[in-house]
Write a protein that binds this DNA or RNA. Structure first.
Lengths: 152, 152
DNA sequence: TCACATTTAATTGTTCGCAATTGAATGTCC
DNA sequence: GGACATTCAATTGCGAACAATTAAATGTGA
């Protein structure tokens, strides 16, 4: 009883939820890799395409808010998507500060090719949809609490 | 009923557990940042230190297995920790292929300074320990299932 | 209108993360 | 013992991720 049980030691790697999340994110990335290679996308690029497939012609700023990414990450990423002829970047005529991101026909067409990706991920998760939804909601709630702290 | 409800659309960003995990990992990183800045560590460097604080004089390979990272990531990271005088890298005399990572006195001493980090994270999570442990176990189980698929 | 603050992207520099390759050390099989 | 495969770390190249800075466009208040 004198020595703290290792299963309760908050400084142990295996007891840290952040490492669980960190390593799960990398595991997801590795599962996505071969699926997205066929689409010519990286995972963050795929996330941007998901945003655009929901709504086209979105300001860079708004993509950043949805994905929690800033222009330092998105500007070069979007330039790569533009070089791949999947999106077009244009300055807004109403507000020259904003850059609007629009899908090209190829970018729009890619949505169909990507349709099988989620079910491949579901299969790899080896888990029921309802369990995954419950976990997702818990993780999102945790993320939002963390982000609330960052804003002070 | 003809149109699929958006809350069930698997191609919607908000319905993807992987994005929840991805964005939660980044949120954790942002919460850790100011805490680890005081220790002069990045989050992946902190993970390596957690491994070494549990057991010293560990082969690079073993650190990689615990953190799911390869030498391409760890070699430069460990060189930075060595430059910061927190670890020492030596070739094993028994097997010259292996590099053993050992804590310096400063590296060992940093454990005490890092003791308050987990409770700061717990506070930011705004969640009970038992809830976090339950979530952690679920996420680890998911991660392990995903990693099992990668190995084919 | 003019001075000043705010907003927005882009840029720069550092660190991860990983695939692919290289090279050295070790293990195995004949 | 020698040919061969395997293991392990290091290296190279590319794409995030983010802090900090810069520059241009817009908003605001005297």
């Amino acid at each position: 009883m004198a020595r703290k049980s290792s299963t309760l030691d908050p400084q142990r790697l295996d007891n840290q939820i952040c490492f669980a999340v960190y390593s799960a994110a990398h595991a997801f990335n590795r599962v996505y890799k071969p699926l997205l290679d066929r689409l010519g996308l990286t995972y963050p690029q795929y996330l941007v395409m998901l945003v655009l497939w929901e709504r086209d012609d979105v300001p860079l700023k708004e993509i950043g808010e949805k994905l929690f990414l800033d222009s330092g990450t998105l500007t070069p990423l979007l330039k790569r998507l533009e070089a791949a002829h999947l999106v077009k970047r244009t300055r807004s005529s109403e507000d020259e500060r904003q850059v609007l991101i629009a899908l090209t026909p190829q970018g729009h067409a890619l949505k169909d090719k990507a349709r099988s990706v989620p079910q491949s991920i579901l299969a790899a998760s080896d888990c029921s949809v309802s369990e995954l939804v419950a976990m997702k909601d818990e993780i999102v709630a945790l993320r939002d609490r963390l982000n609330a702290v960052i804003g002070e």
